[in-house]
Design a binder for these strands. Structure first.
Lengths: 299, 299
DNA sequence: CGGATGTTCGTCGAATCAGGCAATAATTGA
DNA sequence: TCAATTATTGCCTGATTCGACGAACATCCG
């Protein structure tokens, strides 16, 4: 048994390495599947994780959400259910043994369906859980992922088999340790789902300046309950979340569209450039101008 | 506006009448859709209603569930979310103006999906609701149903358009007065859903003799909570429900397969023929032999 | 029915945030 | 190089948000 596990692990490493022969983010013919490779440890990189499963195959990766630190190494998987602004960095990688990671986006509809059909699932005990969790991959999941990647070698079969394997992965996730996290997300009317909707709303309308109490009302919660559950799910307060979103978007605007700081500030919903600058420094370590310059140079 | 409503109602009546030109149950090219016609009032007829929507177009119909009586006439719709052993009969029908009814089976998967995607739906207030409810049809729903029936005239389009209209109907149901009833059914982990699963289990395994407390355990409820919710959803106690299922199945066996009473009794899980006979009389009004004879003659 | 458990919600003090203004630093273009 | 523009920082004020607490409420279970 142990032999087989090791074999699978090796197989996965080999497959991922074959596809990601160079450093960078490799998309595949399976749209939901990406493979990452890094030959050296990286600086902290703020980014947004959506509904999906991430797996470290080789090397080590660290993700921080608010104040919390999550480390996951080979054989461990990280699942996120709502868009979370995290800071991620590769902590362990070398040219000889580069970091290799897999990311698979999950489909909410499929999850909802599968969860609804799961027979006699135990009811969820706690009403809200963190939208992020780390679990050691079990054999079945690893095997399914391996098959998914092997499928890349037979492109003509992808449209037919990839959805099946993805569904299998979802069923396995729902039955495993990640299950409760996922089930919360699709439990109709549960606080978690309401928060997920609020988060989705924020992601869409981050420019607008809606008072958090109003947002709480639209998901039918009192302000205090809303805050409480939001924090439980997203790992930070609603306002912090919104700020993260705005600042990251502003960074993108400045980096990709050469926008100047004050325009970007206005664009993402800030009315005061000074406030923008202040909070930008707090999140990214340096004020807008300098941060962008550094980013440009580091490439 | 009123003119249009009346127009729609008339259109629906005409369409249903066109399809159901003779008395009986008419299935259509849309598998989920059936149309009923009766030229006279009928005797009480015990049967099982599953997940679906029933609509009286012309005439009047009565349905009893346990002790409760539900009447629905033209323009009213009855929705059921789990299999319920009801007694139904047409109360108002004539040759000139026959009873006309429509039944549309709903797809649980589609409901689950749509419910999950409904934005900012109010959370469900009560934890369990009766799996059966009657609501006056609103205009949008009537219109969608009308279009669904009109579609029968263009068979080549059915595979493409019928699913769309059915989904529209589900969305409208979820947003209407029936909404809470349906949402309960698909709320992952809710007592209603647990009960729905128990009901499904019973429907499958009614022959086995599982203690109700064990069944309660498999859906993760204490016996008392199970009984309470079961009653709220199904309108009768678990044991009554089981009896209904068994007796109706036995009746089918005797009618369709000419099985004798004691064999049928054993077949559906009774160990004592006398107990079977007693309960049979209580449900159908007459003991097995005589009931079957009467049924045969009445055809 | 009644005790035990967990959830919601309003309130409150403390903390944080947003924006205004002004001074200073950095960058850009002439 | 200087001047003009833009970015950054400090500080202040009012508004908002945060998180904790306890009462009210619903649910579960025996």
């Amino acid at each position: 048994m142990l032999a087989k596990v090791n074999q699978n692990e090796e197989a996965l490493t080999r497959l991922a390495g074959d596809i990601a022969q160079t450093d960078g983010n490799h998309s595949t013919r399976i749209p939901a599947l990406m493979i990452f490779r890094r030959s050296s440890a990286t600086d902290p990189m703020p980014c947004i994780y959506g509904l999906g499963l991430a797996l470290t195959v080789q090397g080590d990766k660290r993700v921080t959400l608010g104040e919390e630190v999550y480390d996951y190494g080979p054989g461990q998987s990280l699942i996120t259910t709502v868009d979370l602004p995290v800071v991620s960095y590769v902590t362990q990688a070398s040219t000889a043994k580069p970091y290799l990671g897999i990311r698979l986006e999950l489909d909410a509809r499929t999850i909802a369906q599968s969860a609804a059909e799961m027979e006699f699932a135990a009811p969820l005990k706690v009403s809200t859980t963190r939208a992020l969790s780390i679990v050691t991959l079990d054999e079945g999941l690893r095997d399914a992922l391996t098959r998914l990647i092997q499928l890349l070698a037979e492109p003509q079969l992808i449209p037919f088999l990839a959805p099946l394997i993805q569904q299998e992965i979802i069923v396995r996730l729902l039955n495993g340790e990640h299950g409760p996290t996922l089930r919360h997300l699709v439990a109709v009317g549960s606080p978690s789902q309401q928060i997920a909707k609020a988060v989705a709303w924020l992601k869409q309308h981050y420019k607008e300046n809606m008072p958090m109490d109003d947002l709480a009302a639209t998901v039918h919660m009192s302000p205090s309950t809303f805050r409480q559950h939001f924090r439980a799910v997203a790992g930070m307060s609603p306002l912090q979340y919104l700020k993260n979103l705005r600042l990251q978007e502003a960074r993108q605007l400045m980096l990709n569209e050469d926008m100047d700081a004050s325009s970007a500030a206005v664009r993402v919903g800030y009315e005061s450039a000074s406030q923008f600058s202040r909070e930008y420094s707090r999140l990214f370590g340096e004020p807008p101008q300098r941060d962008i310059k550094r980013m440009r140079e580091s490439i």
